[in-house]
Structure formats: structure tokens, C-alpha cells
């Protein structure tokens, strides 16, 4: 288990950002998981001393830039989500795999609901249930990462 340091936080965030920038299109674009938010949640659980709400806000700004929406939408969504991740961080570490998966799903949904509210205020249309697809794919990605041996905190307790 390599120690978590600031460098790995930033490298992983940049990688996630490049994943966001990949030229997705069509159905895959609709189902594209929120890579940045997943990485942030991971670091918030794993190393809350390195990554906090401020980091989430800053990363949210980049997400805003990449999606071309109004500045601050993703920033606000990530901030609130990060807050919920941080206040339950100590419990999250104690959770087993399934519980953690469920909580991560709730976090992803939270971010999407906040974005939905902001978009509705900005005059977007009703988006349908496909809007919540990224949360599901996000959780799947989290699960795959766990299967491939990524330490998401839950297992470090069990050792």
C-alpha cells in the first residue's frame, strides 16, 4: 500500500479530468460517470487531511470550465457533496464494501440533484430518468476499482 501524498491526489485528479475531456458522444456521453467527483470522494474518504471541501470546490470550477456551463454550478454541487462525505468520513471508513457503495451512490445522486436544481433555475428542460445514469455507472466504476484492489478505506479497517 503506497502512502497517499499530495502528488498522487493531483495526478489522479488530472487523470480524471482528462477522462472528462475525452471525446464522448451519444449514449456513452449520457452514461458517462462523473470521474472527477468519484476521485474527490475517494480522497475525501481516504485522506481527508490532503483533500477537503476547498479542493472539491476548486475541481468543480474546472468541471464547469470543461462542460461550458455557468461558472459555479459544479463547484457548488461538489462542495455540498464533499461536505456530506466529510462529516460522515469516520463512519465511512468503518463501513463494509456494500454499505460504502451505497453511501457513495447517495453522494453521487446528491451532486446530480443539486446540479438538476441549478439547471432548472437556469431554464433547462425536464431531463428524464436517463439524467441519473451517471450515478449508477459511477457506482459501478467504484465497485470495479474495489475489485481491482483499490483501497477505498473500508478494508484497511478490517486488517
Amino acid at each position: 500500500m503506497h502512502p497517499s501524498n499530495l502528488k498522487s491526489v493531483y495526478v489522479s485528479l488530472i487523470l480524471a479530468f482528462i477522462c472528462l475531456l475525452l471525446p464522448w458522444s451519444g449514449v456513452v456521453l449520457q452514461a458517462r460517470p462523473d470521474f472527477l467527483l468519484l476521485v474527490i470522494i475517494f480522497w475525501l474518504i481516504r485522506a481527508p487531511n490532503l483533500c477537503n471541501i476547498g479542493t472539491a470546490w476548486f475541481v468543480g470550477l474546472f468541471a464547469d470550465l470543461a462542460t461550458g456551463g455557468t461558472f459555479g454550478q459544479y463547484a457548488l454541487a461538489y462542495t455540498v457533496t464533499a461536505f456530506f462525505a466529510v462529516i460522515y468520513q469516520r463512519r465511512l471508513v468503518l463501513f463494509n464494501g456494500t454499505q460504502q457503495l451505497f453511501y457513495v451512490f447517495l453522494l453521487l445522486i446528491t451532486a446530480q440533484i443539486i446540479l438538476l436544481i441549478l439547471k432548472t433555475f437556469a431554464g433547462a428542460l425536464s431531463l428524464g430518468w436517463a439524467y441519473f445514469l451517471p450515478s449508477i455507472t459511477g457506482v459501478l466504476l467504484w465497485k470495479i476499482a474495489m475489485i481491482f484492489g483499490l483501497n477505498t478505506g473500508g478494508r484497511s479497517r478490517a486488517r
Binding site: N52, I53, G54, A56, W57, G60, L61, T70, F71, G72, Q73, A75, L76, T79, V80, F83, V86, I87, L118, A122
Partner: peptide, 23 residues
């Protein structure tokens, strides 16, 4: 550092200000 709630309030306010400015 500041509590999680204080950070939440601060950064949320910042985001809202940004949104208002940008739009």
C-alpha cells in the same frame, strides 16, 4: 482549520456569487 460546516458555507457562497456574476 475551520470546521466542515464553515467551509461548506464559505464555498457555497463563493459558488453562488460566481454563478450570479457569470450569468
Amino acid at each position: 482549520g475551520p470546521s466542515a460546516f464553515a467551509r461548506l458555507v464559505f464555498f457555497s457562497a463563493l459558488s453562488l456569487a460566481l454563478m450570479a456574476t457569470d450569468s
